[in-house]
Amino acid sequence: MNSVREFQSARDYLNDSARFGGLLEGYRPREAQLRMADAVAEAIEARGTLLVEAETGTGKTLAYLLPALLSDGPTLVSTGTKSLQDQLFFKDLPMVLKVLGMARKAALLKGRANYLCPYRLELHQEEARFLTRETAEQMQVVAHWAGRTRTGDIAELKQLPEDAPVWPWVTSTADNCLGTECPKYSECPLMNARKEAQEADLVVVNHHLFFADAALRGEGVSELLPSANTVIFDEAHQLPEIAANFFGDSLSTRQVQELGRDALSEAAHSALDLAALNQTVAAVDKACQDLRLSLGEAERRAPWSEVQDSPAVVEAGTALLDALVDLEASLA
């Protein structure tokens, strides 16, 4: 058996089939994986930027985990989905850490909605009579699990689906979290997960949480994630769309149509001329439908630059703007 001293790089470890052979059936070194590991290590050392595209079966996860864990300073690894996040943390990372035989602390961190809020659980258990029968029954399942869980990560509770109606009652939002004033603050799974992340050598997050943190930092709000020397994005092709959701503004024709319906609903409680407002809202609704039709295929997704000069789109867009000006005048 080679001594630890002889293994100085990720390539050294990957070249040792004996180390991985007992953990990965049929393991053998692959040149593409070795080259990727070298490139990742060099980028970390130089504090540079590296973009890697590799075929399925290359072994990308090992090629970036080994250099990251062998490097100095904390690392953030961001995945495309929560399921990949769990696979990386519970399957891949333990294997790599076992191979390395080194003391490295890893942590898993998800968004707020993924953690049990003990305070809200207790609060709504006392008010169970106000819940539906289904939600009240699910509340008891959550309460039983809450007494056993160490992490409070709701993904542990496989008995309940992700869209179970009980989850909003037993998790928190930024608006209803009491923070340090919460009587259950010391046992809060979210705060404990963040504390572990601050102390870890490698933290596994997901793209949505990463950009939520970046957006908060841009607004001067305290960050969600710890600082890191290295950031690795797995499934990086998803980044543009996710980043746009956090840093861009969007407006759909459905939202515009909802504005019209909301205006009619509010007008029913006032002295507004409902007949005239109905006509204005109907014009907005028709203009929205015409704009959608002018874009072509119903499920089409394309850059605005591809359609902005189309005569049909220009005409429909102008008609919608005119209809919205009329609606604004009516509401004023």
Rank of each mutant, 00 (worst) to 15 (best):
N2M: 11
S9R: 12
R11L: 03
D12G: 02
F20L: 15
R30M: 09
A32L: 08
Q33W: 03
L34R: 08
R35Q: 12
M36R: 03
M36W: 05
M36E: 11
D38T: 13
D38E: 15
A41D: 02
E42S: 09
E45N: 09
R47E: 13
V52C: 11
A54R: 11
T56N: 12
T61V: 06
Y64V: 00
L65A: 04
L66W: 00
L66C: 00
L66H: 00
L69V: 02
L69K: 02
S71Q: 05
D72I: 01
S78E: 03
T81G: 00
K82N: 15
K82A: 11
S83P: 01
Q85D: 01
F89A: 08
F89W: 11
K91V: 14
D92A: 12
K98D: 13
G101C: 09
M102V: 10
L108R: 04
L108D: 00
N114F: 04
R120I: 01
L121Q: 01
L123P: 00
E126Y: 08
E127R: 15
R129K: 11
T132P: 08
A136V: 03
Q138S: 14
G147M: 12
G147Q: 15
G147T: 10
T151C: 05
L157N: 09
P165W: 07
P168C: 09
S172D: 08
C177L: 10
T180M: 12
K184D: 14
S186T: 10
C188D: 12
R194P: 04
K195V: 06
A197P: 03
V204K: 01
V204F: 04
N206F: 02
F211A: 00
F211P: 00
R217D: 04
N229W: 12
D234Y: 01
E235A: 11
A236C: 13
A236Y: 05
A244I: 05
F246T: 00
L251E: 14
R254S: 10
E258R: 15
A263Y: 10
A263N: 10
S265I: 05
A267I: 09
S270K: 13
A271P: 06
A275F: 14
N278Y: 11
T280W: 03
T280E: 08
V281L: 04
V284D: 04
R292V: 13
E306V: 09
S310K: 08
A316H: 11
S330Q: 13
L331R: 07
